[in-house]
Amino acid sequence: MLVVRPITPQDYAALYSCAVESGYGFTSLPIDEDLLRRRIARAQEAFAREHVSEPGEEGYLFVMEDTESGEIVGCSGIEAAVGLTEAFYHYRLGKVVHHSKSLDVYNALETLTLCNDYTGVSEFCTLFLREPFRKNQNGRVLSRFRMLFMAEFRERFSDLAIAEMRGVSNENGESPFWDWLEQHFFTMDFNQADYLTGIGEKAFVAELMPQFPLYVKMLEPKAQEVIGQVHDNTRPALRMLESEGFKFRGYVDIFDAGPTVEVDVENIKTVRESMRKPVHIGDVADGADVILCNTRVADFRAARATIHVAEDSITVSQDTAEALRLKHGDSARFVAL
């Protein structure tokens, strides 16, 4: 069974492997030992906080484990509130109108403005599933279980959630959007800039990024074409988020111009449709296929499972109960897969 659980220090080697396999443009998983170990330690602190009344600096990082082999097959995370101690940058797409009534000229031009508009919101991040396991809806489980976690522990998260989508780049990690920025404002390549941001070195953004709105028409055609577009490998993740209610509101990444999508947490489909019921352990023949989780923070467990749903309880198999550390009478939260 593939079970999602909080990351531990023993998972470092697997997390490092995920960072290597994730490739270029995956900012939240840089290949940096110190940063990855700090992310694990920070996650452990977040899971250990029993009483949280509002979102703060917590960063929750989970791994998906094959319980038969012990192999870590992927990872997934949630930031409780971004930008509280380090600036969180985006470009905001807008419009400027140049109009002369006397000359009968009207031009509406798109602009890109550097901003910190998403400061304080929760972020779904660090979603990576290793190639051999991208089947049987494993990716859907690895993404959507976070929405169950958020539904169960609402006080830990903001009312608005976002997800940054990887933008367009080639097999060498070269971004058409960054190529234009590099040519005019920077002297570092995309991978170096992306890596520095991933390890928290963001001062150069404020120091070197253009502070005034950019006219999109000034960019090279190749750079214009990728604004708000996603990497081919990211399209399935974007479609899944859109099915949950996430929408693109005109905010893009400052390096590769990939879209950031947002949603009010109360309107996330999984949050709205999830239910919490007491658990019985028994036969689940002809049951429903769901994503199921227990209701504990530090000892959190989630997985795909078959359960029988009654009006006032659910029945799970003995194997599922053991994998998710559920006992008779415990509460569990679930949503249809």
Score class of each variant (00 low, 15 high):
Arg146His: 08
Arg146Leu: 12
Met147Thr: 03
Phe149Ile: 09
Met150Leu: 14
Phe153Asn: 12
Glu155Trp: 04
Glu155Leu: 08
Arg156Asn: 01
Ser158Tyr: 02
Ser158Lys: 03
Ser158Met: 05
Ser158Arg: 04
Asp159Asn: 15
Asp159Gln: 15
Asp159Tyr: 14
Leu160Gln: 07
Ala161Cys: 09
Ala161Arg: 02
Ala161Ser: 13
Ile162Leu: 14
Ile162Arg: 10
Arg166Trp: 04
Val168Asp: 03
Glu171Ser: 14
Glu171His: 11
Asn172Val: 02
Gly173His: 01
Glu174Gly: 06
Ser175Met: 05
Pro176Ser: 03
Pro176Ile: 01
Pro176Asn: 02
Asp179Leu: 13
Asp179Pro: 01
Trp180Ile: 03
Trp180Leu: 04
Trp180Ser: 03
Leu181Ser: 07
His184Tyr: 13
Phe185His: 13
Thr187Asn: 15
Thr187Leu: 14
Thr187Tyr: 12
Asp189Thr: 06
Phe190Arg: 02
Phe190Ala: 12
Asp194Lys: 08
Tyr195Asn: 09
Tyr195Lys: 12
Leu196Cys: 10
Leu196Phe: 07
Thr197Asp: 12
Gly198Cys: 08
Gly198Met: 10
Ile199Gly: 01
Ile199Phe: 00
Gly200Val: 14
Glu201His: 11
Glu201Phe: 06
Lys202Ile: 14
Ala203Trp: 03
Ala203Gly: 06
Phe204Ser: 10
Val205Tyr: 05
Val205Gln: 09
Ala206Tyr: 00
